[in-house]
């Protein structure tokens, strides 16, 4: 069953208890497991989706939010194609920590990584962070933004599908140019060296 055209690694990060595991479970298994204990280390799930008739395999890494697992979770940033930074819209501290998370992403992740900010738990009526505040933050830091509810399955499918589509587009458009630019570099270098040898031949 391993016939897929693209494989993307998606890593979820954010404070403990913001619902990362629930988002992943909702997307991969279609269920909302209440009373989930804290994630230990990292969890790993796979879901193959179809985008424009192509099979796209999403490898989803669900990281532990707790500080003591940081040295495990940090090691996964580098190879991520997309990073989902999650906060809880009913919990101000999880939003306040976002700059710390961004610093960490800056330090460990590739600069090309697709970054998405997600405000989770919109099913709750004790909202503390208004939508526009999240939006502003995301816009300031050049991230996509989406509010979701893993419990009500709101926007969860949309979140991951959007990521799959974007990454596929990125892969399609970047693949050739990236190769081209590297050869172009070599070529330009070659031509300069070629010129000098040409001159010396004249002498």
């Amino acid at each position: 069953m391993d016939d897929y055209k693209f494989l993307f690694k998606v890593v979820l990060v954010g404070n403990a208890g913001v619902g990362k595991t629930c988002l992943v479970r909702r997307f991969t298994q279609g269920l909302f497991p209440p009373g989930q204990g804290a994630t230990i280390g990292v969890d790993f799930m796979i879901k193959t989706v179809e985008v424009e008739g192509e099979k796209v395999k999403l490898q989803i890494w669900d990281t532990a939010g707790q500080e003591r697992f940081r040295s495990i979770t940090q090691s996964y940033y580098r190879s991520a194609h997309a990073l989902i930074l999650v906060y809880d819209i009913s919990c101000q501290p999880t939003f306040d920590c976002l700059p710390d998370w961004l610093r960490e992403i800056e330090e460990y992740a590739s600069s090309k990584v697709l970054r998405i900010l997600v405000g989770n738990k919109i099913d709750r009526d004790d909202r503390e962070i208004p939508t526009h505040v999240g939006e502003d933050f995301a816009a300031r830091h050049n991230m996509y933004f989406l509010e979701t509810s893993a419990k009500e399955a709101d926007n969860v499918e949309k979140l991951f599908m959007q990521i799959a589509e974007d990454l596929m587009e990125q892969a399609r458009s970047k693949d050739l140019p990236r190769y081209d630019t590297s050869t172009a570099n070599i070529d330009s270098r070659t031509s300069t060296i070629g010129d000098s040898s040409c001159c010396s031949k004249l002498i």
């Binding site: 990292v42 495990i72 090691s75 996964y76």
Partner: peptide, 15 residues
């Protein structure tokens, strides 16, 4: 004996 530990070290080695 920790799989998470092994994976993290492999990731670091790759980097």
């Amino acid at each position: 004996g920790s799989l998470d530990g092994i994976c993290a070290i492999i990731n670091n080695a790759c980097r």
